[in-house]
């Protein structure tokens, strides 16, 4: 999959959601420069399902953090839905995270003292959405992940799979443009993993742009295409059904 399709796409072509141009991210660790990302160019279209793979330390998480506006690139341009994120103020970045991006984490990050419903509601609370609307939307979202009967439970009363489903409901409650998932099944058994992946597939089919960082070939296989990072550079791009082509690179891990 080449990145030829760029600026002058016709109106009927899929809309471009993400454009990365010459992204560098350098950290300073103990006085030494660590190049986490080196000259990353990438485009992601609306509704695409992309898996990001690579050995440990290859820059996957750094890329995800930059895509999620939690981190800023040292150099390069990041456009999200046609707008360059680099020049946005802290305040505007907060609004971008609130309204355009959803996060799912390996360790769920549910707030333990809140019920499932309250956790799902949380993004809407900070967005100032009225209580009645919040309740209704949260109830629907929890129903969509099949946990209506667990809505009033606290995270510790839920299984890992259930927790991740709640986290998924929370990540999509603001109807974001993109969903970023960092090893979403990394902490789950195979049955729960499958449930989560099915849910993600369903969301993708309904048009959500999905970026999943994973080690797991079973997860990556479901993606439309796979980006393989090695030492902070994009080493390879393959379609999801050609997962076997990249396993060799990953095996070095």
């Amino acid at each position: 999959m080449s990145q030829a399709a760029t600026s002058a796409s016709p109106d009927d072509a899929p809309r471009r959601v993400i454009r990365l141009d010459g992204i560098h991210r350098t950290f300073e660790v103990g006085g030494e420069q660590v190049h986490a990302l080196v000259d990353v160019d990438e485009e992601i279209l609306a509704g695409e399902h992309v898996a990001i793979m690579g050995p440990s330390g290859s820059g996957k998480s750094t890329l995800l953090n930059i895509l999620g506006c939690l981190d800023r690139p040292t150099a390069g341009t990041y456009e999200l839905e046609g707008r360059s994120v680099d020049e946005l103020s802290t305040r505007e970045l907060t609004l971008v995270r609130r309204n355009q991006i959803g996060f799912v984490f390996q360790f769920f990050h549910l707030i333990p003292r809140l019920t499932a419903t309250d956790n799902v509601e949380l993004p809407m609370v900070f967005a100032g959405i009225p209580r009645a609307e919040r309740k209704q939307r949260a109830t629907e979202a929890i129903q969509a992940v099949g946990l209506t009967n667990r809505a009033d439970h606290q995270p510790e009363q839920l299984s890992g799979g259930e927790r991740q489903r709640i986290a998924l409901a929370r990540a999509t409650i603001m109807r974001p443009a993109i969903l970023l998932a960092d090893e979403p099944t990394g902490n789950l058994d195979s049955k729960s993993s499958k449930d989560i992946l099915d849910l993600l597939d369903g969301m993708s089919e309904r048009g959500l742009t999905l970026l999943v960082v994973t080690h797991d070939p079973k997860v990556a296989r479901r993606a439309d295409r796979i980006i393989v990072l090695v030492d902070g550079r994009i080493a390879k791009r393959v379609s999801g059904d050609r997962i076997s082509d990249v396993l060799e690179i990953l095996a070095e891990d």
Partner: peptide, 22 residues
Amino acid sequence: MPASPQKNELGSLRWRDLLQFA
């Protein structure tokens, strides 16, 4: 489905919600 950025301002956290959260 791209969500249009909502017009909510940053300080839109409601008092009641704030108190409940705290």
